[in-house]
Design a protein around this nucleic acid. Structure first.
Lengths: 188, 188
DNA sequence: TCAGAATATAAGCAATAGCATATATGCAAA
DNA sequence: TTTGCATATATGCTATTGCTTATATTCTGA
């Protein structure tokens, strides 16, 4: 679905590969991301498919950039995708939970250390989504001249990031408490 | 990381590809999953790498099954993986949120329909994690003769699934309310 | 003047994923 | 007897992912 993420952003505004990478990093990172190499490859494939086109644009103080613009075919493809209902919950992959699941085979104290580290990481993420991401979204919305519905949609996805991090922190606290209690009992 | 998921289960108990598929479906589906074809391919690769071995086991009322057993090298590889700290939060990919993000370009009412559908899907998932998954986990724990720490770890990951679904339902309610309010204002 | 960072583009390649397809055995219900 | 489903194994193949690597321009600070 990287294709649609790129078409989606280009539907707002002509952008370069590097712009797209930064937009994703700012605005969608809690639920979508892509490697820069993947972005360039997919842009190339989209151009070869006739959905977008590009031109080289010199810049005064930076290297030249390749700016991509959505073509009518790309516009229609994006509209088709948006109209298409999503009927399944997408399955998640979560590395930490996989490790927790099998950590009964390891050291409870090592798991505890791991969970404490992740609590800090998630705190940091939460802080970012509550403080920096609203600013990034506001700036990016202004840049693409988004509508009221755009604003609601973008903020709703940021809000999902906030709720997710809060949920994760609650789970981490709970699990750390359970582990501490088990260790205190001498069962490991 | 499918390799480690498979090694992890085999560390408890010799199992077939089909057993592993069912164990994953029962116990880890909120944070890990794999296609059956991938499971078979990975088991084959693990056997070729000398981490596991297999034997064919006839069954009275079912087709023969190939049972995989962990070798010492596999045991050590799993222990190495468990001891290795996970220092990054794994980035998520969430198809619905990607669609929500770009739905400012579509119809607010179509998005509303989509969100209502997902609310039902997530309710169903939550019910499953609260009712069926504890039974599956209890049965599977008994089968592998898990320790108290195993029980805590397995239940903790189920609990993460519960909290995730509750969070998601809360987010869906919130977002549906915001959309309804926007539509009532006539801004879309 | 040079090094480091930011900006900017892009290919190589191995690993992973996912869907489709194929084949077979055995049981239960119509 | 036949059909459908569960059980069970496994390959083909395309798409996607992710990490590495490469190259270049421009600016800033030491």
């Amino acid at each position: 679905m990287l294709k649609y993420a790129l078409l989606g952003f280009l539907r707002y505004h002509a952008l370069s590969g590097y712009d797209l990478m930064r937009l994703m990093s700012d605005s969608t990172r809690n639920f979508w991301h892509a490697d820069l190499s993947q972005i360039y490859k997919t842009l190339k494939a989209l151009e070869e498919s006739g959905l977008i086109e590009s031109t080289i644009e010199p810049q005064p103080d930076h290297p030249d950039r390749r700016v991509y613009t959505l073509l009518e075919a790309g516009q229609q493809e994006m509209a088709r995708w948006l109209a298409q209902p999503l009927t399944d919950v997408s399955p998640l992959k979560e590395s930490l939970l996989l490790k927790v699941f099998f950590s009964g085979q390891g050291e409870a104290t090592a798991l505890l250390t791991q969970l404490r580290l992740h609590r800090d990481l998630h705190r940091h993420n939460l802080e970012h989504y509550m403080e920096q991401t609203p600013r990034d979204i506001e700036r990016n919305l202004a840049m693409v001249q988004g509508s009221a519905l755009d604003a609601l949609c973008w903020d709703a996805t940021r809000r999902a990031g906030v709720l997710y991090e809060e949920m994760y922190l609650r789970w981490l606290d709970e699990t750390i408490n359970r582990l501490e209690a088990l260790i205190a009992q001498g069962d490991s």
